[in-house]
């Protein structure tokens, strides 16, 4: 049975323009549509009456590129757990619902237009050491480096971060700790990451602070909203590495 939904959408023409919530009716929506397909349809209808469409970020639409970034009814990526908003389906809503759609809100993520924000700060954090310093060519045989399966699995848990920024958007302090800890944690659990382990932790954490992300005061909202369920234990591991780095002067 198709449904009628009332959307309350953040509209903002540009970075410096004022923004506001607008009410847009989304009628005759099939529960099998994805949330973004519902927005596509709303946009088609807006354009038909010469209103510019609602701008939102999206690309892969299968929960892996990390491009989509909507706060739905106050929750980053919407009501379902372990789901990006592009994987959310309208069957999670019911006829007559009011649905509030807003962009990621954080000091470090300024709005570009409507629901699109600027996440360049994430790039600069990754550039501050989110790598293993090797040059292409000249690496030893792939099986020369043995990695115990449990360690490889833990590294993979961390590496599955898609860099969407939901952790920041859901944190009352706008902290990026989970995002940063995911990269640091991936390398900390692998032999390849050891030589630069402490220096990496220190540089990335410091860059995070420079970018204006808040501090972690243990709300755990980041873990709850993370579409890839990156566990919060990586934050405490990162904190330990950071302290060690400071003590060692790395």
């Amino acid at each position: 049975m198709n449904m009628n939904i009332t959307l309350h959408v953040w509209r903002q023409k540009g970075p410096d323009a004022p923004g506001r919530m607008e009410i847009i009716q989304a009628d005759d929506i099939s529960p099998d549509m994805s949330f973004l397909e519902m927005l596509d349809l709303v946009n088609e209808r807006l354009e038909a009456i010469d209103i510019e469409s609602i701008a939102f970020d999206h690309d892969c639409r299968e929960g892996i590129c990390g491009m989509c970034s909507l706060v739905v009814n106050g929750i980053a990526h919407g009501p379902e757990s372990a789901t990006t908003v592009c994987q959310l389906h309208m069957r999670s809503f019911k006829d007559g619902d009011a649905v509030y759609i807003e962009p990621w809100r954080a000091r470090a993520f300024p709005v570009i237009r409507d629901l699109i924000v600027d996440r360049e700060a994430f790039e600069r954090i990754q550039q501050a050491g989110g790598y293993v310093s090797i040059n292409c060519g000249g690496s030893p045989d792939a099986n020369a480096i043995l990695v115990p399966k449990p360690e490889a699995d833990t590294a993979m848990d961390a590496a599955s971060c898609i860099g969407c920024g939901a952790c920041v958007a859901s944190c009352p302090n706008g902290s990026a700790m989970l995002f940063v800890a995911a990269k640091i944690g991936q390398f900390a659990h692998l032999p390849q990451g050891q030589p630069e382990r402490f220096r990496r932790a220190r540089r990335m954490v410091e860059q995070m602070e420079t970018e204006g992300f808040g501090a972690c005061t243990n709300h755990f909202e980041c873990e709850a909203s993370c579409p890839k369920e990156v566990p919060i234990k990586f934050i405490s591991e990162m904190n330990r590495d950071f302290i060690k780095a400071v003590l060692k002067g790395e």
Binding site: Y131, V132, I134, C136, G137, S139, P140, D141, A142, N143, I145, L146, V147, P148, K149, A152, D153, A155, M156, A159, Q186, F187, L190, Q192, G193
Partner: peptide, 23 residues
């Protein structure tokens, strides 16, 4: 193709492993 795998492992990509630690 083989050099690609060497490069990717050296970068710290967490490929699936056997219990013995091999790929």
């Amino acid at each position: 193709s083989n050099a690609i795998m060497d490069q990717c492992v050296a970068q710290g990509i967490p490929f699936a492993r056997e219990y013995g630690g091999q790929l």
